[in-house]
Amino acid sequence: MHAVVLHEFGPPENLTYETVPDPVPGPGQLRIAVRAAGVHHVETLIRKGWVSETSPPLPRLPSIFGGEVAGVVDAVGPEVDPAWLGRDVVVARSTPGGYAELAVAQAANVHRIPDGLDHAAAVAMIITGNTAMGLLHIAEPTPDDVVLVTSAAGGIGRLVVQHLRDLGAKVIGAAGGPDKVAAVRALGAEAVDYNQPGWGHGIHGVTLVLDGVGGEKAKTAYDLIVAGGRYVTIGNASQQDFAQDNPNVTSIDALGLMLSGAVDVDFEAEALAAAGEGRLVPGVQSFPLAEAAAAHAALETRATTGKVVLVP
């Protein structure tokens, strides 16, 4: 099969498209002919060899990245019901990673894709959708909140905006550039371009910030929160921190709580059902599997909108 392999930590160009042996499912496993594979921002950091207290351990090289896989079951191992064959499925944890034409997963971890949901959308929901729902579970927004969402055009941000809109909260989405602002506005939220100077002027009464970007943009959002409000971290695309020094604002690192396991949230099935029913519609930007390096480069420079997906 073809796969994207990392032999040495470094720039996106270190991801090489090559031929590797087909994986064989073992006991309790099934094999998926991959139709879509998800790409995570954290994978761009791991590719560089980056480590932190909350990041996954660096893989042993050579490595095939990506656990999010959607496709069609084409083989089953011992102890697996052959009725799985031919089914459209999605899973968050596959081996080797999803940057490949074939991947193996534990049958117990696999979900059937709801009718009407395509492979790319299913991949966008299995981790990104699960994460978005978990973060909202921790943040506990209400219809009375005025919510400012940064990185609102991203994979998580788009889902969060839709949930808040349906909840009845006032939603302001901040994103970078006219195309992303238009995408947020199309979701039914107010939208601002946080690449423009003074972008926070005119925003008032913010009771909750859901921040996915960090750094100076997050600081601007933080300073807009009224007394008694909450600042909730749902990501840190910039990998930059800032001083959270307002005693009248409650800060919650929701993403850190989830990554550390301090809060147990498992919404995979619920996220897929919400997408299948049309209540949440993920944004997807697809790249050919052979262009995984370009996908990483675009994700790193925040040139993408929605969930980045590789298509063999």
Rank of each mutant, 00 (worst) to 15 (best):
G129V: 08
V213N: 00
G155P: 04
P288I: 00
A227T: 08
R230W: 07
R158Q: 15
P282W: 00
E13T: 15
H163V: 05
H111P: 12
N246W: 00
I64C: 06
P178C: 05
A174T: 11
D223Y: 05
G215V: 02
A37M: 06
G28I: 14
G10H: 07
P11E: 08
L224V: 03
A105N: 11
P27K: 08
M125E: 10
I126D: 04
G176R: 06
E140W: 01
V104Q: 07
A132E: 10
V76S: 04
G66N: 11
V104N: 10
Y17K: 00
G261P: 09
P312G: 09
I64V: 15
L6N: 04
P178M: 04
A297Q: 12
G134L: 06
P178A: 09
F287A: 11
A174H: 08
S260E: 02
V209A: 03
I113A: 01
R93W: 09
D245K: 00
A273K: 09
S251P: 07
G116T: 13
A120I: 14
L85D: 06
R158W: 01
A295K: 08
E43N: 12
K48L: 14
A273T: 15
S63N: 12
G228T: 02
G28R: 13
E8A: 10
H163T: 10
A274E: 11
V146F: 05
S151V: 03
D211M: 05
V34P: 13
G98V: 14
G276I: 15
T150I: 10
A175V: 11
L255N: 03
A122H: 06
